[in-house]
Nucleic acid binder design. Structure first.
Lengths: 195, 195
DNA sequence: CCACCAATCAAACGGTTGTTTGGTTCTCAC
DNA sequence: GTGAGAACCAAACAACCGTTTGATTGGTGG
């Protein structure tokens, strides 16, 4: 780790930025090479192919997300606390690595079937983590008896959308946004009468 | 209207399907022409350019959404009822035209700046509609004093994400999904003690 | 000082891209 | 039955694509 970045990591970061801003197919090897001040053929000293590069970026994205969220799910906190922390952690992670996360969320269709299958497996694993919390909460009566599948999609849409509008210069930090999200999902927006 | 579809409308439908499945840049004029059984040069009898075609599809998407949602916002229903109906209508619209909506939500970055600006204006207009309901609800005490900006993004993420997973063959109709969404946003998932 | 190796260049490859041009076919109104 | 216009073809255009090959550079350990 430390402060040194290898040339290869530099390549990955540049590619993630370009892929997320312009899209995978709209970004040429030329574009990436220009940013690194080398010729486009030279990129193949670091990567196997353009699509291999895309796959690597997406795998990095989903793995980062998963290793940050899994400990929460497997902890022994009460379900409502787990859900709140998951929502917040997911939000913060997306805000921390917006380029990688945008690529991961956007470019699944740009992968060839075998690689797409592998990323889809990751994604389903992650979906399962989210649902486990909901099932747990409903079973022990902390949550109302909601449709777990639909609510988990609602939740994922809410947090995944963050990369579309979040800016570090905005009025709220990623932590605050995560907390607001969690609050809405748990309590709803409706004001309640005293009794 | 009626049952007759012109060749041009056929083109738009085919293009929307291909753009949404493979992405704009990954879809060639060849691909579109093949689907219509003509040569790719012949497409220019109907459209001005590939990007002009994309713009037209996106405009169709956002306009459809807006003309279905605006009457709800401008009605004189109470804010909680307005919000529930907006969420449901948005969900149903996305489920009804998934190809057009996916293109509208995904391909903004594929437009050149002038056209992108115009679509962005539509989108901001739509965002404004959503926020108006929230502000209204907070002001008259029906909603808790939430951060309107962040909550509106939460809400939009939730409903926009629908195109990623909805299937007409799934266990729930778009109307049901919309109702579940509205319920979560209004009430939250938390069970509440009797008193 | 030599040998190695990572990093990069230079040049070419076959293929595809979006778009233009000018001509052809077909249908239908008058 | 002739003129008009819509629908489409055939062919070409320059530009760019991802990838491969073999040579070259510069630094570093022995």
């Amino acid at each position: 780790m430390g402060n040194e970045t290898t040339r290869r990591e530099e390549l990955l970061v540049v590619a993630a930025r370009l892929f997320s801003r312009k899209g995978y197919h709209a970004t040429s090897m030329q574009d990436i090479a220009d940013e690194l001040n080398i010729l486009r053929g030279s990129l193949y000293h670091y990567i196997e192919s353009k699509e291999g590069l895309l796959y690597e970026l997406m795998e990095l994205g989903i793995q980062t997300l998963m290793e940050r969220v899994r400990p929460i799910v497997e902890s022994d906190l009460p379900p409502d606390e787990k859900l709140a922390r998951l929502i917040q952690q997911h939000t913060v992670t997306i805000a921390s690595y917006p380029d990688f996360m945008a690529v991961f969320l956007h470019e699944l269709k740009s992968l060839s079937p075998p690689r797409r299958e592998r990323i889809l497996a990751y994604r389903q694993e992650y979906d399962h983590l989210v649902r486990r919390i909901l099932v747990e909460g409903v079973e022990c009566g902390v949550f109302r008896p909601v449709d777990v599948r639909v609510v988990s999609f609602a939740l994922l849409g809410m947090v995944n959308w963050v990369y579309q509008w979040y800016s570090p210069d905005g009025p709220r930090s990623a932590e605050e946004i995560g907390a607001i999200f969690a609050n809405v999902v748990l309590q709803g927006v409706l004001e309640r009468p005293e009794k």
